[in-house]
Design a protein around this nucleic acid. Structure first.
Length: 512
RNA sequence: GGUCCCAUCGUCUAGCGGUCAGGACAUCGGAUUCUCAUUCCGGUAACAUGGGUUCGAUUCCCAUUGGGACUGCCA
């Protein structure tokens, strides 16, 4: 029925993948995405929990590719995942002893376990076609029954051996279904690490274990085999898996294996701009739910981690503010404290984390981060901005010398470069709307000396203001707009120092 | 329809029977010898509703309402 004889017995598999030799309390986790070519921010959130749990407990974090859906295969999809892991600093340890880590390469294992189930009557070959099932489903819903292949609706549940041979001779390939003995009137209690014990009706559906079209396992069966033999201790997954928890308990119980600890995470939501209502982040409508969005727009990956980390361990923020820990990796999260109610993804708060993060960087680190980003993702303008490292450094160093009073207007690498565009002559946009006081500008030019220290420089401005009977600020504003084209800028003195004498006089003269 | 999950300021949350219901973001004021930003100070703002249990409920139980998930040979 499985085409070939099983490669292993259960005992052989147990020996091949022995329990891990790890200290007590060490958690073994895995990030197990299906390679769709798109990584959702929710995936990253889950992976962060996995990685963090393993990291803080001295355990193992694995990356397992769930490529059992041949129909949804996307080329390059695995690279998207691996790139994200690297960018966000999630180091996985795929010890080959417990591999392979592509489910498509683990057929031997699934088939061996399935063979055992077939042998002891816990599973059976099912020759129902898609049409058959569609018919069953419509009849069930018409009659008001629950849909699915179960009990009397499971035609091949007790199929006779000669019937099987007949189908096989006919060239039909069966799927392998669970022979469920669950009683829907009885209750099974399952455990979720944050929600506690949850009662469900026992599962009576003969779910597919091995698909007929490609011989690959369904998620449920792969989860059973992989997380058992990879010796996963903690399974972190989205709450959409909660309803299949009784099935998974049933599967593990049937094999007499110990199920892992389950942690079901709430989905990240957002407010729909059109309806004003809360909803799940969607791939199509919300670019910011794509991890690639954060990379392409130059969000500091560590700030994204800090933000997500604070969501999943709400005490982190306070610990950091108090100086108890320096970053999220130093903070010990508690699995029980992972929020179970859906959270809104708050871009404003992410921005705050990003501002704080960049504000705490040294100038050389900031320059490097911005430069690296521009080289990979920037446009021609941005690449030009990072070409002269010395000038870029001077620009980004403005008002960063006093650690207690660092500017916090940089949010992303991209936005940082946009904010300082006026420092480059090619990108500078003169302000033609502003009504300049040319007398003031001329007066400034007369006494301007780039070598002046800040006090001398300021006293000259005060002197001009007095002479024209206007406020100091008005003089400064004329200069500010002439130099930057903007009414809001960092410290004027610093700007002039960075721009240099020639550029300052040239820009002022150009407005006269 | 059935099953399951969830519910404290606008947002994320602390709380685990007795608190002036705390913090952070956002927001609104005020101060900081040039705008903006920063920094500091201060303010507005929440226990969805109805029943119980209890001397006492944000907290425990049950309904209701609201939000969400699942109900595929997708994960």
């Amino acid at each position: 029925m499985l085409g070939t004889a099983p490669k292993y017995t259960i005992a052989e598999l147990e020996k091949k993948f022995p329990p891990r030799d790890l200290p007590v309390g060490a958690m073994v986790t895995r990030f197990a995405p299906s390679p769709t070519g798109f990584m959702h921010i929710g995936n990253l959130y889950g992976a962060l929990i996995d990685y963090k749990l393993a990291q803080q407990s001295g355990g193992v974090f694995m990356l397992r590719i769930e490529d059992t859906d041949t129909k949804r295969e996307v080329v390059g999809a695995v690279d998207v995942v691996k790139n994200a892991m690297r960018r966000f600093g999630f180091e996985y340890n795929n010890d080959e002893k417990y591999g392979p880590y592509y489910q498509s390469q683990r057929k031997d294992i699934y088939r061996s376990v399935a063979a055992e189930l077939l042998r002891n009557g816990r599973a059976y070959p099912c020759f129902l076609t898609a049409d058959d099932m569609e018919k069953i489903r419509s009849e069930q819903s018409a009659a008001g029954f629950a849909t699915g292949i179960y009990g009397e609706f499971a035609r091949d549940r007790d199929i006779a051996p000669d019937e099987i041979i007949k189908h096989l001779d006919n060239g039909e390939v069966p799927s392998i279904r669970l022979y469920s003995t669950g009683n829907p009137n009885a209750r099974i209690f399952c455990k979720d690490a944050v929600r506690g014990s949850i009662g469900f009706p026992e599962n009576n559906e003969d779910l597919v274990l091995i698909k007929s079209n490609d011989g690959l396992p369904t998620y449920h069966f792969a989860h059973l085999c992989d997380d058992h033999f990879m010796r996963t201790t903690h399974v972190v997954r989205g709450e959409e898996w909660l309803p299949s928890l009784p099935l998974h308990y049933q599967l593990f119980r049937m094999m007499e294996w110990t199920p892992p600890v389950y942690i079901h995470t709430a989905t990240l939501d957002k407010i729909d701009e059109d309806t004003g209502k809360q909803r799940k982040m969607s791939k199509r409508k919300d670019p910011e739910c794509n991890v690639a969005f954060f990379l392409e727009n130059g969000w500091p990956t560590d700030a994204v981690i800090e933000y997500l980390g604070n969501i999943l361990a709400s005490g982190y923020e306070e610990a950091k503010l108090k100086g108890v820990v320096k970053n999220f990796w130093e903070y010990e999260m508690k699995p029980k404290k992972i929020p179970m109610s859906g959270g809104l993804f708050d871009m404003k708060k992410l921005e705050w984390w990003a501002k704080e993060y960049i504000g705490a960087m040294t100038v050389p680190d900031l320059v490097r981060a911005v430069t690296d980003w521009a080289k990979e993702y920037g446009d021609d303008k941005q690449k030009m901005q990072v070409a002269d490292l010395e000038y870029l450094t001077a620009v980004l160093a403005i008002e960063r010398d006093n650690p207690k009073r660092v500017r916090k207007d940089f949010i992303t690498w991209k936005q940082t470069l946009e904010l300082v565009e006026f420092f480059w002559d090619d990108l500078f946009v003169p302000n033609r709307e502003y009504k300049y006081n040319t007398d003031v500008l001329n007066a400034f030019l007369e006494t301007f000396d780039i070598a002046d220290d800040k006090d001398t420089w300021w006293n000259k401005i005060v002197e001009i203001a007095n002479r024209f009977g206007i406020k100091n600020g008005d003089v400064a504003m004329d200069l500010r707009v002439a130099l930057s084209g903007r009414t809001n800028t960092p410290d004027l003195y610093s700007i002039m120092q960075v721009m240099g004498k020639a550029r300052v006089t040239q820009r002022i003269k150009a407005t006269l």
